[in-house]
Amino acid sequence: MDSFEKTAVEACRVAGEYLVSEFERESLDADYGPDDVKAVADRGSERRILDVLTTAYPDHGIFAEESGKQDGESDYRWVVDPLDGTNNFCSGIPYFGVAAALLHENEPILSVIHDPLHDDTYVARRGEGATLNGEPIRAESSVTSDHATIAYVIGIDVLRDEELKARGDELESNLSGYGKRIWKSWAPVLDWGLLARGKLEAVVCFHPDAVEQHAGWLLAEESDARLANEGDLFVAAANDEVFAELESLF
């Protein structure tokens, strides 16, 4: 696990350094679709991550956002989001991250999330807890439910399916009755990081994208967030009061 963690942190940091340099020079080359943005920086970041991972573990499988699935010969598989928050990146909004999760026999065992603009790195190891820059963290907030900030995350499939979109809109409407603010950042991996350190009171996901969800959910688990999941609806909270209210969504 130490080797896996060291490699994943290195991969995310190399990618993060590249993204910061591109962001600072306002490199906005991208293909803009009706519901998504694909930036040149996505592909550049992914190449750098995969170079590190495949050099260290050539027999591991990989699923990456841009290049898709690459079969391996072992029971280990990396799930990679090279630039979470592409819309933000291309709009000059300083809120984007990099994530890598390692699965063993399809169970996430390692999560690394890197916030390159703040040089913050979150790590979670199955059964071993969560850290921020090497220091233990816990999803614990004393903010009461009426002042809570709740991150709401939907996957790209929700935008492309009328039935899912209607359900997603209904969930968002229901969420508006809780807390102080519903936060839609378009960079969920950083939302998971804020939850894990007690800076957000909850994260609610509907049909989240796999490239970010594996890393985020394991980080929430290992930081002792209160968790509930039914199908493609996920709720994680940083205190009992907020969690009890959000359980009514199920």
Rank of each mutant, 00 (worst) to 15 (best):
M1S: 02
S3N: 15
V9M: 09
V9S: 08
E10M: 10
C12T: 05
V14R: 09
G16T: 02
Y18T: 01
L19E: 01
V20A: 02
S21N: 09
E22Q: 11
F23E: 00
E24K: 05
E24S: 00
R25F: 05
R25A: 09
R25S: 02
R25Q: 03
E26H: 08
L28C: 05
L28R: 13
D29N: 09
D29T: 10
D31F: 11
V37M: 14
V40W: 10
R43C: 13
S45K: 10
I49W: 02
L50W: 12
V52D: 09
L53M: 00
L53F: 01
T54K: 12
T55E: 06
T55D: 07
A56Y: 03
F63M: 10
F63R: 12
A64W: 13
S67N: 14
K69H: 13
Q70M: 10
D71W: 14
D71R: 13
D71P: 12
D71N: 14
E73I: 02
S74A: 15
Y76T: 03
V79T: 06
V80L: 05
P82R: 10
L83R: 04
T86M: 06
T86Y: 08
N87R: 14
N88L: 05
I93W: 09
Y95I: 03
F96V: 01
A100R: 07
H104D: 12
E107Q: 13
E107C: 10
L117R: 00
D119K: 10
T121L: 02
Y122I: 00
A124K: 04
G129I: 07
G129K: 04
G129V: 13
A130K: 12
L132R: 09
N133S: 08
N133F: 07
G134L: 01
G134Y: 05
E135I: 12
E135L: 15
P136A: 02
I137E: 07
R138T: 06
E140V: 07
S142P: 00
T144A: 11
S145H: 11
S145C: 09
H147D: 10
H147T: 09
T149P: 08
I150L: 10
I150S: 12
A151M: 05
I154Y: 13
I156D: 06
D157V: 02
L159T: 03
R160T: 05
D161W: 08
E162C: 03
E162I: 06
E162Y: 04
L164N: 10
R167H: 04
G168Q: 04
D169I: 08
E170P: 05
E170Q: 07
N174M: 14
Y178A: 02
I182A: 09
I182G: 04
W183P: 00
W183M: 01
S185D: 06
P188T: 13
L190C: 00
D191H: 08
W192P: 00
G193Q: 07
G193M: 10
R197V: 01
G198E: 00
K199T: 00
E201N: 10
V204T: 06
H207F: 15
H207D: 14
V211I: 07
Q213P: 04
H214W: 15
H214P: 08
A215T: 07
G216A: 01
L218V: 10
L218Y: 11
L219N: 01
L219T: 00
D224R: 07
D224E: 11
R226A: 11
R226I: 12
N229P: 08
G231A: 15
L233K: 12
V235S: 11
A236G: 13
A238F: 11
D240V: 08
S248Y: 11
